Simulated assay, not measured.
Amino acid sequence: MKVSWSKEAIREVETRFGSDAKVWKLVFDSEGCGCSVDGVPTLWAVNAPLPDDLQADSDAFGVWYEKQHEMYFDEPLRISYLPGNRSFKLASDGQTYTNTFKLQDLRH
């Protein structure tokens, strides 16, 4: 999996989460959605990837993901920042996943 970040997205991540937020996990979060096919793409700041996580080819931050979530995402993925909405956007060449891409800090 390939992930590219816009300069604005990098800057906003560092502003919101600090320059030490270098490890991120891309998930298709289905918690509370009712079933596993309904979910929301989410990026979690984590302390470290889990042993079975796979590493994406990312040009800014370390991004990991679980093999079973790979099927939900096209390549290459692009993460950008929309200053007018104060939100992140996740897109590929074929689709926009969300203009309100959720980034959540799960570090301890």
Rank of each mutant, 00 (worst) to 15 (best):
Y97M: 09
M71W: 11
K7S: 14
P76A: 07
L43F: 04
W5Q: 03
P83E: 05
T100G: 04
L82S: 09
V46D: 10
I79H: 03
L106G: 10
A21Y: 03
R16H: 04
D20S: 15
E8D: 13
W44E: 07
S19E: 13
F73M: 13
K22L: 14
D29K: 01
H108Y: 14
H108W: 14
G32P: 10
F101Q: 05
Q95R: 15
S58G: 00
R107W: 15
F28L: 09
Y97C: 08
S87G: 12
V63D: 00
A91S: 15
S80R: 09
K22P: 06
Q55H: 02
D29P: 02
E12Y: 04
D38H: 11
N85P: 00
A48D: 15
M71D: 09
V40Y: 12
S36F: 00
K89L: 13
H69K: 12
L82K: 05
M71P: 07
A21F: 05
G18R: 09
K25Y: 12
D29Q: 05
L26M: 03
E66F: 05
Y65I: 04
W24G: 00
A91N: 10
F61R: 01
M71K: 15
A91L: 07
T42V: 09
P76S: 07
V37C: 08
A60W: 06
Q68L: 07
I10W: 08
V46Q: 08
H108L: 13
A56E: 00
D74G: 13
W24L: 02
R86P: 01
S87D: 15
L106F: 15
E75R: 13
K2L: 04
T100P: 04
Y81E: 00
I79W: 01
G94W: 08
T42I: 05
K102I: 08
